[in-house]
């Protein structure tokens, strides 16, 4: 059975005054198996962020359904959604979204604190994780005191500390220089190797080329998808780039 099942998602935004309707998602369906590392690609305005928000249960779809780990999100109440998000989902954002008022340690521990874990349990989980992400020495520092890459590592640690079923990453390399991006993407690979399911939304070809599977979204629909299979990262990069060119020039590569 799939870990994540997305069925016929449709999302229509109504502008506040004019009543004009904008269809952000027309009909999106796909499934995600446990341990998969999937990238969703598309240009700005293609519906990527809307999709992510709905998957993150931060927004509700106009119609359609999201099923994670066998549970449908549409039936959950606000309170339950928060708890669900806390224990099943981890988030990594483009601009890190670390709270400036917390040290890195406190930022990472935030989801556990909200879940009401004991402090001993928090420490037990934090130490190995921080070592693995190479930020053990930075825990007492505040976000403004460390580099962007280090902030993003802390954000990843925050996403992983609850041991979630699925990591949702929104343009995780968007605010980083190329060198830091490389090391971060390698880190994502390692995390995935260790069994973590990841869904990443990006328009960076390089970021997507590290994934095992790439979904292309255009005008609110899944347009095409690529599997890496045995391809190397460089070969995957070329395949993605070709697909994007076709998409942009209007060619039909529907799978």
């Amino acid at each position: 059975m799939n870990l994540l099942e997305v069925k016929n998602l449709r999302k229509v935004y109504t502008t506040r005054f004019g009543g004009t309707q904008v269809e952000a998602l027309r009909s999106v369906s796909f499934g995600l198996e446990k341990g998969e590392y999937t990238a969703v690609m598309g240009e700005s305005g293609a519906g990527k962020t809307t999709l992510l928000n709905i998957l993150a249960a931060l927004d509700r779809p106009t119609s359609g359904e999201v099923i994670l780990g066998g549970r449908s999100l549409s039936g959950l109440k606000d309170q339950e959604l928060a708890a669900f998000r806390r224990s099943n989902l981890g988030f990594v954002f483009q601009d890190f979204n670390l709270l400036p008022t917390f040290s890195l340690r406190d930022n990472i521990l935030l989801p556990l604190v909200l879940a009401g874990e004991s402090y001993r349990e928090m420490e037990k989980r934090l130490q190995p994780l921080a070592r693995r992400l190479g930020i053990s020495g930075l825990l007492a520092k505040f976000p403004y005191e460390v580099s962007g890459g280090e902030q993003q590592r802390a954000a990843i640690a925050r996403a992983l500390i609850t041991d979630p079923q699925l990591i949702l990453a929104d343009e995780p390399t968007g605010a980083l220089d190329s060198k830091t991006s490389d090391s971060l993407l390698r880190l994502f690979g390692e995390i995935n190797e260790a069994g973590q399911t990841i869904l990443m939304v990006t328009h960076s070809v390089k970021a997507a080329s590290h994934a095992k599977r790439v979904l292309f979204i255009k005008d609110g629909e899944i347009f095409h998808q690529l599997y890496r299979g045995e391809l190397s990262v460089t070969e995957m990069y070329e395949r993605i780039a070709d697909t994007l060119t076709l998409l942009a020039t209007g060619g039909d590569v529907r799978a």
Partner: peptide, 15 residues
Amino acid sequence: RRFSIMQQVGMAGSE
């Protein structure tokens, strides 16, 4: 901003 981040990492709106 703080509260929107908290909501993302798993705090309910009411909380």
